[in-house]
Structures are given as C-alpha cells and as structure tokens.
C-alpha cells in the first residue's frame, strides 16, 4: 500500500496500436505508445490502481500506479575485458609499454 504523499511512478497508454501514426515500422505499430511519469501520490493506493499525482512542475496528472519509491539502478555494467586491452594496446604502441 502506497500512502498519500509518497513519491511514486505512474503509467499510461498514450496511444493504442490502432491510434498510432501510420508511418511506423510494423514491429512498433503493434505496440501501444506508453508513458511513465513520477510525482507525489494524492491518495493511498495499491499497485495497479488508477491514481492522481502531482509532478515536480506541479502538474496534476493521473495514471496506473506501477512503482512506489522509484529509484535509478543503472550502473557501469559488468566487466568488458576488451576495454582494458584497448588501454594496454594504445599505451604499448605510444609509449612502448614497460620497455
């Protein structure tokens, strides 16, 4: 249960597939245009319920509650050993490595 005043994320279908621009590639055309917005929740609600939020700019908007306390999880990825090898290669060519 998310409480009134919590920071949340809501989801909307902006355009259903049949409402979309007809200038789209087929693979895109079959999906709806979806939208996510974050804001302060205006009523207690469960995930999946239709709710009202107030965004950072003060806009009142509605949508399906999809996330409580959303946060960023992007990172620097897993090891890509090739990156280290490039560094070694260009240093070897330019400076002669440890020679």
């Amino acid at each position: 249960m998310a409480k009134k005043g919590d920071w949340v994320q809501v989801h909307n279908i902006v355009l259903r597939p049949e409402e979309r621009s007809n200038a789209l590639p087929e693979d895109t055309q079959k999906h709806p245009l979806e939208m996510w917005v974050k804001g302060w929740l205006q009523n207690d609600a469960e995930i999946g319920e239709e709710v009202e939020i107030i965004t950072r700019t003060g806009r009142h908007t509605t949508g399906t509650l999809v996330k409580e306390a959303p946060y960023f999880e992007h990172n620097f990825g897993v090891l890509v050993p090739e990156v280290l090898k490039i560094g070694d290669m260009v240093r070897e060519i330019t400076f002669g490595g440890n020679k």
Binding site: R20, S21, L33, E34, V37, R56, H74
Partner: peptide
C-alpha cells in the same frame, strides 16, 4: 537515456518517459 533522466531529475526537472515512436 536513463542516465539522462537521472541527471534531469537531479536538476529539478519533471521527466516524461515514452516508448519508441515519433508520436
């Protein structure tokens, strides 16, 4: 793009995120 969303939010903006499409 997610990093850009983070940065915009960090600077006080409202970020509206969409799926792929020129609409």
């Amino acid at each position: 793009i997610i990093e850009k969303a983070r940065k915009c939010e960090a600077l006080g903006a409202e970020v509206v995120q969409l799926t792929v499409g020129p609409e």
